[in-house]
């Protein structure tokens, strides 16, 4: 167990060091996510209003669909981050190097998924700020809403990173892996998009209590894929 955590920390640190040096997430993934968000804004007119007799000012459709758009942007951006995560291992035989070093395969999985989580948390922070800014989202702040929102983001991003890392490894030996990974990952992550949107909607506009069952579902999904990654990564690496 100690070795597994040691190996995971080593791989995570290495991937974050590579990002600090290359700035791919900062210079490419974050702008890509923000661009998607802005394009969504162009697609849905900000003048479209929801008919709500109880509201003094009718909320815009754009602001109400923000939770879904936000996680769609994060999901698309995650494809770049996940692709990059395995792209650095595909060059110059570094994946063989990791195998030759005798690192615990589960540790490699946890380290790589962990680095994607850290990067996507940064992406989602920027995208969330952008959504509030561009879509004029107005909410009543409370600690309970903030806790629900942050927990939702954490669970959803962990699920995205774990499933994405697992399917990237699955496709790593294929020549068509760049186009294959989105095809594999997007359908699998559809439940995450649904859960994250519902929980975020509850955090922003609805009753906070309505969001927690969705967070529990997201956490279960994340746990499932983290578990699957830990158990299967040795086989996946062996078959490359």
């Amino acid at each position: 167990m100690f070795e597994l955590l040691r190996d995971a920390r080593m791989v995570l640190g290495k991937d974050l060091l590579i990002e600090r040096s290359s700035r791919v997430v900062t210079a490419q993934v974050v702008p890509f996510a923000v661009m998607i968000l802005i394009l969504f804004g162009f697609g849905i007119s900000p003048d479209l209003r929801i008919l709500d007799s109880t509201a003094t000012v009718a909320p815009s459709v754009l602001s109400r669909v923000t939770p879904g758009l936000l996680f769609l942007a994060v999901l698309f951006a995650s494809l770049l981050a996940i692709g990059r995560s395995f792209g650095v291992e595909a060059n110059d035989g570094t994946l063989d190097g990791l195998r030759m070093a005798g690192l615990d395969p589960a540790g490699i999985f946890l380290g790589k998924a962990g680095a994607v989580v850290v990067q996507l948390l940064g992406v989602s922070a920027v995208v969330t700020s952008g959504a509030f800014l561009f879509f004029s989202v107005r909410i009543e702040w409370s600690v309970a809403r903030a806790v629900l929102g942050v927990t939702t983001a954490g669970a959803a991003i962990t699920a995205i990173a774990a499933a994405g890392t697992l399917y990237s490894a699955l496709a790593a030996g294929q020549r068509e892996r760049e186009s294959l990974v989105p095809l594999l990952v997007i359908p699998v992550l559809a439940p995450v998009l649904l859960g994250a949107s519902q929980a975020t909607e509850a955090a922003l506009f609805g009753a906070v209590a309505d969001g927690w069952p969705w967070v529990a579902a997201l956490a279960a999904f994340a746990a499932l894929y983290v578990g699957a990654g830990i158990l299967s990564f040795e086989t996946l690496l062996e078959d490359m």
Binding site: L17, S21, N91, G93, T94
Partner: peptide
């Protein structure tokens, strides 16, 4: 044939 080195490091 490969050197197993990370280009960005």
């Amino acid at each position: 044939h490969d050197t197993s080195l990370y280009d960005d490091l």
